[in-house]
Design a protein around this nucleic acid. Structure first.
Lengths: 175, 175
DNA sequence: GCCTGACATTCCAGTATTGACATGTCAAGG
DNA sequence: CCTTGACATGTCAATACTGGAATGTCAGGC
């Protein structure tokens, strides 16, 4: 149930509306825990019912600002310290690698090169973010910086791997 | 709909029963596309209805062996060459990094070191697999070898990153 | 002959996720 | 005044995924 804790974690930093949270899910959290509007608003409702968050202000345009409760903070802490992260991951891109033998050598190499290219693109985009953001402000950006570094290392690794794999594939399976 | 294509991809290599497929999902595909029994048997039914696979033999103990049809092979090829892999990923472990500022420095460092340790463990497990498997047999293992290399590079990167992050965290946020 | 473990499938209830639709408010610029 | 775009929430049906229970078969060892 990570969505629940993602919302809780965001609200632990500052009070926010569902709309505010959506901006976080569409930017910083987009590569880590994607979520849709329906999920976020739904989860806020459940969280409120459970007493982990509360509506603090009802503003213009029906805006409801939520704050985390003591109980919510406690649950966030419990999650972070007493539960293990789920390490199983799904990767569509890697799944395809298993079935590359259903393609011709040329097609397979094209796939791997395309992956290399996409990884390079994502790497460049993260470099942009790195340059744009002021990393000295706020305690949030310490974590953000560390998470970004992960992204940089991941995409660099992916590009290298894909180039290596394309080479291997071309070598080991002459048509 | 990657599960569908995972099943299709496995059946493209050789005919198999739901039980056989489950062994693949529990071993080689476990780190790439986890699936439960209910999902696999369910998908086989849907795939058969759609005409992408067929029951070839009904054996002992109610065993049904499925084979991929021409149409199935075509769909697999279409998926591999004409659709882009979904690159959005969820990572519980990385989500937690965003909220590390809700913990004390010590707790945060402990989390990151635990991640380093787990990554190291998974890396070692993959090294074991690498040593155990005969990489010269079959065309499947070319892909398997390439996917394993990804896992090795990923876990190595994760361990290094987590050690680096633990250090950064300890440095940048003195209690 | 009996037990155990691997083989094998089916069904189900509950939860999570997706993607789209519906509805409305407010501020700013032309 | 009117339009546009950002703000803001809510609901729905469909699909995907989880975890467990129920059921039964067959081979091999004792």
């Amino acid at each position: 149930m990570s969505l629940r804790h993602a919302v809780l974690g965001l609200l632990a930093n500052r009070p926010a509306s569902g709309y505010d949270l959506m901006r976080a899910f569409d930017s910083s959290l987009a590569n880590v825990w994607p979520a849709t509007q329906s999920q976020v608003y739904g989860e806020l409702g459940k969280l409120a019912t459970a007493g982990l968050v509360e509506v603090s202000t009802e503003g213009a345009r029906g805006r409801k600002e939520y704050v985390i409760t003591e109980e919510g903070r406690h649950e966030l802490h419990r999650w972070l310290t007493e539960t293990e992260p789920e390490r199983k991951m799904r990767s569509d891109a890697m799944l395809r690698v298993f079935f590359l033998n259903s393609l011709t050598r040329l097609e397979a190499v094209a796939y791997l090169e395309s992956e290399a290219h996409h990884a390079a693109g994502r790497h460049a985009a993260m470099r942009e973010v790195e340059a744009r953001v002021d990393w000295d402000e706020g305690p949030l950006s310490v974590n953000g910086r560390i998470a970004l570094e992960y992204g940089l290392r991941l995409t660099a690794m992916q590009e290298e791997w894909a180039r290596w794999a394309a080479e291997q594939y071309a070598k080991q399976r002459p048509e």
